[in-house]
């Protein structure tokens, strides 16, 4: 994929540190996500991957260092970013349609227009006809689709994803990954995708960043993924190029996983 190299990065972390009381979750992190780039962050459990996302989202400002969004220092919530959470984050008292239309209605869009566009997005994620269902009436995979539509309808320039598919079964998960790639290829948002699953990271991303085991974790590896697009996440896993990258990254990640387990 060809990208202008001199453009301002969508997200840039400069020597960022985050602490929770005495515990230092991440320390001196430098990370950049270019415009239109799909970056996956992998690391053992407890390496502060979600902490990174929360800082970029502006939900919890860093203890030290700077978060820049399109060149500007971030203060308060990140209005350019959409956040897909790991846990169910839909409003259980709103229907699928109400949930997807939520962001627009917060922004003051007229109800009819918001609902019309929400209908469009539900159809786009394959949930046409499920508008009036409440979240508890949908399966886990369907709820993730609604959550995806809820975020994408706001057309964020930056997409933050925190192990969004980890609770799904393998088949549903690969369906959702392909769906995500299809939607991403339409308008190439900048994506920061956090996962503990290396295969998922390689199958989706342009670049894989490996985090060291916590505490005080930081990026220790940076691997470009030059697999052709468009990809099918199921098929790409079987190619020689994929396996080669996998071997390479796993060599580094393995030590960190062992370290994380040794400490647990």
């Amino acid at each position: 994929m060809v990208r202008p190299t001199n453009s301002t990065p969508a997200v840039e972390l400069l020597r960022v540190t985050q602490r929770f009381g005495e515990y230092t979750a991440v320390a001196d992190v430098d990370l950049r996500v270019d415009e239109g780039e799909f970056v996956a962050v992998v690391g053992p459990t407890g390496c502060g991957k979600s902490t990174l996302l929360n800082m970029i989202a502006g939900l919890r400002p860093p203890a030290a260092g700077e978060v820049r969004v399109f060149g500007q220092s971030l203060e308060g919530l990140n209005r350019r970013a959409g956040y897909l959470f790991q846990a169910d984050a839909l409003l259980p008292w709103k229907t699928a349609l109400g949930n997807v239309a939520l962001g627009l209605s917060f922004a003051g869009t007229a109800r009819e227009e918001a609902e019309a566009r929400a209908r469009g997005w539900l159809a786009k994620v394959g949930l046409g006809g499920f508008e009036d269902r409440y979240p508890h009436q949908l399966s886990g995979g369907m709820r993730k689709r609604v959550a995806l539509a809820q975020v994408l309808i706001m057309d964020p320039k930056i997409l933050l994803m925190d192990e969004p598919f980890s609770a799904l079964d393998v088949q549903t998960r690969q369906l959702m990954e392909n769906e995500l790639l299809r939607l991403w290829e339409e308008d190439q948002k900048s994506v920061l995708f956090v996962t503990h699953d290396l295969e998922e990271a390689i199958a989706l991303a342009d670049r894989v960043v490996v985090m060291s085991a916590g505490p005080a974790s930081r990026p220790i590896g940076n691997f470009p993924v030059s697999l052709e697009r468009p990809r099918d996440v199921t098929e790409v896993r079987l190619t020689e190029a994929f396996l080669e990258i996998h071997r390479e990254v796993w060599g580094l990640l393995r030590e960190e996983v062992m370290r994380a387990h040794g400490q647990a």
């Binding site: 989202a57 939900l59 919530l77 209005r79 970013a81 959409g82 956040y83 959470f85 846990a87 169910d88 984050a89 839909l90 409003l91 259980p92 709103k94 939520l102 962001g103 917060f106 922004a107 809820q150 975020v151 706001m154």
Partner: peptide, 20 residues
Amino acid sequence: VVLANARMLGAGRNQLLRHV
């Protein structure tokens, strides 16, 4: 999580009160 989600979707204080 629901609260953070609503905030990320742009909810103001009154909207959080009413919708969350």
